[in-house]
Design a protein around this nucleic acid. Structure first.
Length: 279
DNA sequence: CCTTGAACCTGCGGGC
DNA sequence: TGCCCGCAGGTTCAAG
């Protein structure tokens, strides 16, 4: 489900709700998601105060006054929803934090590809989840030259490469297709064959697409919601994702000839592109 | 080291 | 109606 824009939107929504709040209790309703819940999680959260909420890659970071950080990953279908005191757990509500005052922060994830860690503050760089992450695309750590260097020598398709979290974080299946369209690059091109000027354009496109998507509150296809249950709206602005057979925006190609937006499978994932603009 | 493909899990929509 | 298939915003692990 969530790529960087969705996770960032959730963090921004969560920040004013959680910052400075004390945790009354927590409820763990099954022993694992993709990996087991941390041992003694509920006991370690009870009584803690939340100091700040941040994001790294597709992880939500809830910093606590115990010099520990609650790390949440939403996998494909995860949601975080704010509920009031009288809320009763529903299907796939696996984990819940109850704040002083009664509000509940609910982690719901049908497919259970999500992850919850509790790590020491000083593990932020050494923990296996963060060890091999690439640069944040919206930071000044990321640029055309940085991307060009990371793609150099890679034998995978450029589309697969920009979804590799070691190259750049936060880009998933939707925004990979959208960024390559904006940059006018054929997704099947070999990463190692991307020229410097193309890497420059692609880096800019990644930033622009992610930024626009954040401002739209992310993309809602099925599972993703804001913390109040509202949908994002960037799905209304997709150029190519899930648009097979349709013309791309402002298309000048002969649809009768090209067949419009094309869908291919790369690394087991759907890729959408315009054969005219990205040929 | 690198690359690829399968696996993890539930739900939904389409075709028969 | 029911069943089977393919498909879905991600990551990890084994095998080549």
């Amino acid at each position: 489900m969530p790529e960087l824009p969705e996770v960032e939107s959730i963090c921004r929504d969560l920040r004013p709700v959680l910052k400075g709040q004390a945790i009354k209790s927590a409820l763990v309703r099954r022993r694992d998601l993709r990996v087991p819940f941390p041992k003694g999680l509920a006991a370690k959260l009870a009584g803690r105060k939340i100091t700040r909420v941040a994001r790294r890659a597709k992880y939500i970071l809830v910093h606590l006054d115990s010099a520990q950080t609650l790390v949440l990953h939403l996998g494909m279908s995860g949601r975080i929803l704010i509920q009031e005191e009288d809320y009763k757990p529903q299907k796939h509500d696996h984990f819940m934090i109850i704040l002083e005052g009664g509000r509940k922060i609910v982690f719901n994830d049908p497919r259970r590809f999500g992850v919850v860690h509790l790590i020491d503050e000083d593990e932020m760089k050494t923990h296996s989840a963060f060890l091999h992450l690439g640069p944040e695309p919206l930071s000044n750590q990321f640029s055309g030259p940085v991307l060009a260097a990371a793609l150099k020598g890679k034998k995978t398709a450029v589309k697969t490469a920009i979804m590799d979290q070691r190259i750049v974080v936060g880009v998933g299946n939707i925004y990979a297709s959208e960024s390559l369209f904006m940059a006018g690059i054929d997704p099947a091109r070999l990463a190692g064959a991307i020229r410097n000027d193309e890497a420059e354009s692609l880096a800019g496109a990644i930033r622009a697409v992610l930024d626009k998507a954040i401002r739209a509150g992310g993309s809602t296809l099925r599972d993703y919601r804001r913390i109040g249950g509202e949908a994002g709206s960037f799905q209304n602005h997709f150029a190519v994702y899930d648009k097979e057979g349709r013309p791309c925006p402002g298309c000048i190609c002969d649809i009768g000839k090209t067949g419009g937006v094309r869908r291919i499978v790369q690394g087991g994932r759907s890729t959408f592109y315009c054969p005219g603009k990205q040929g």
